[in-house]
Simulated assay, not measured.
Amino acid sequence: MNKALELLDRALETARDEERALAAKDYERAATLHASRARLLQDAWSLRSGASVEIYRHKLSELSELQKGMMRIARDARDTVRASLQHTHRQQKRLTAYQKCVRMAF
């Protein structure tokens, strides 16, 4: 098998691990895996000239689909964090107003 295709296979495995890490909310591991996947893709790209175009394209399509799934997971995580921060902000505003009322009463 061509070295570029081997690197793409490793990138696919790394992407699957990255997706599992994101789903498990292990964002540090996901970031590390992402960096590793980026290096593998860069290396595979530089060696692509000897690879079968159809197989190479198929593997890139698989990676693209995995990336879409990871983006959905990341977007959902971002939305959850954003909602939590908004809730915390509202709670803090209520507490500040309550403290102000208590001080005015004394």
Rank of each mutant, 00 (worst) to 15 (best):
M1G: 13
S46M: 04
R72A: 13
E6F: 05
A21S: 02
M104I: 10
K3D: 10
S46D: 09
R16E: 11
R75P: 03
L85V: 15
K93I: 14
D26H: 03
A51N: 04
R90S: 07
Q92N: 09
D76W: 08
A21Q: 00
H89N: 12
G50T: 10
R37N: 11
E19L: 09
K93E: 04
K93H: 07
E65F: 10
A24D: 02
M70Q: 13
S49T: 10
V102R: 11
M104F: 07
Q67E: 15
A38H: 08
S84I: 15
L63H: 09
L5Y: 05
L7Q: 09
E13M: 04
L40G: 03
I55N: 06
C101T: 14
L40N: 02
A15K: 07
T32M: 00
T96S: 04
R82Y: 00
A4V: 05
A83Q: 13
T32I: 15
R10Q: 14
R75I: 08
Y98D: 02
W45N: 15
R29M: 07
V81Y: 03
Q92H: 11
L47P: 07
A74Q: 12
M1F: 04
T80K: 07
E54R: 07
Y56T: 01
L95K: 13
Q92T: 15
E28K: 11
A77E: 13
H89G: 02
C101P: 07
Y56L: 03
L66P: 08
A11D: 03
A44W: 01
Q92M: 08
E18A: 04
I55G: 00
Y98V: 12
S84E: 15
R39Y: 04
R20Y: 02
S36M: 04
F106R: 11
A31S: 09
S84R: 15
A21C: 05
A105F: 10
R39L: 06
T14A: 05
K25S: 13
F106Q: 10
V53A: 12
R10M: 11
M70R: 12
L41F: 11
D9R: 11
I55A: 07
L7P: 00
A11E: 02
S46N: 11
D17K: 05
K3V: 00
M104G: 06
R103E: 10
